[in-house]
């Protein structure tokens, strides 16, 4: 694999006296979709939050494009090309769709204001429903639309990698399917992705690489086509899900 966009090594973190991550190692290559799977409490979302800078790392390193960003605040990591779509979407409910998107471009507009219009157009082209609702308050939209807005807002920063946490949670099946297509489109445009997802079918539908976590460590990593089926079944407590190497 060429130099990874995101490289996490020996990551330890937790809350108060509780250690949640016991030395996580993983990497996300350029334009790769890496999926983190595991049971509840395995530390998947905490890994994402530490990588994004929302939770401090106790030990280990997070590198973004080769640069050590372990001690940088979350807002500085966005400027360096790391976007994060959090669990529960977290759009700004009292702002309009367009204002949400403009805030997503906060760092882009500071770096190069002239690119804003083109990035906005490309996001609105990708999400026509958002274009139709530019003036609508985000808090009044459906869960599926808010999920689209959250992804669109992340793209407004023109990121190199997006961390996506449980995007399908709480969505109706049709909305989840639409979201898979959206994320696939984002992937095709060359943006790398580190995805945490409880819905294994949803996750495997997108994955290039699969990482399985248990009790705060990565216990199995492999390209999607070469995932150890029995290991996956045992770790996740599910039946066989992979049906060959094609999508």
């Amino acid at each position: 694999m060429s130099s990874p966009i995101v490289s996490i090594k020996g990551l330890r973190a937790g809350f108060g006296p509780t250690t949640v991550l016991h030395g996580v190692d993983l990497a996300v290559g350029p334009a790769e979709v890496a999926v983190l799977l595991g049971l509840n409490g395995a530390g998947k979302s905490v890994t994402l939050r530490v990588a994004a800078g929302l939770i401090p790392a106790w030990a280990g390193t997070v590198r973004l494009g080769g640069e050590d960003v372990t001690t940088l605040p979350a807002e500085a990591r966005v400027g360096r090309g790391m976007a994060h779509v959090t669990q529960g979407r977290h759009v700004f409910p009292g702002l309009t769709v367009e204002e949400n998107l403009r805030l997503g471009a906060y760092t882009l507009r500071r770096r190069d204001r002239s690119r804003y219009a083109a990035v906005l157009d490309s996001v609105l082209d990708r999400f026509p429903r958002l274009a139709d609702r530019r003036r609508q308050l985000a808090g009044t939209m459906s869960g599926g639309e808010q999920a689209m807005l959250a992804v669109g807002r992340a793209l407004m920063a023109n990121p190199r990698v997006i961390l996506v946490d449980e995007p399908s949670a709480g969505l109706a099946p049709a909305a989840a399917d639409a979201l898979v297509e959206t994320l696939r489109g984002v992937h095709r445009s060359g943006v790398a992705m580190l995805l945490v997802e409880q819905n294994v079918t949803f996750a495997l539908d997108l994955a290039d690489t699969v990482h399985v976590m248990r009790q705060g460590t990565v216990v199995h990593s492999a390209p999607r086509q070469r995932v150890d089926q029995d290991r996956l079944t045992a770790e996740l407590g599910i039946g066989r899900l992979l049906k060959g190497g094609t999508r």
Binding site: A52, G53, L54, P73, A74, E75, A76, V78, G79, A83, H84, T86, H90, V91, F92, P93, G94, L95, E99, R102, L103, G104, Y106, T107, R109, R110, R153, M156, A157
Partner: peptide, 22 residues
């Protein structure tokens, strides 16, 4: 942008950080 950041931070500080608002 900064003013919008102020409004965003009031509604969801974590989300505001994640779009780069200081």
């Amino acid at each position: 942008d900064f003013g919008l950041g102020v409004l965003g931070a009031a509604q969801d500080p974590a989300a505001a950080r994640l779009v780069g608002v200081p």
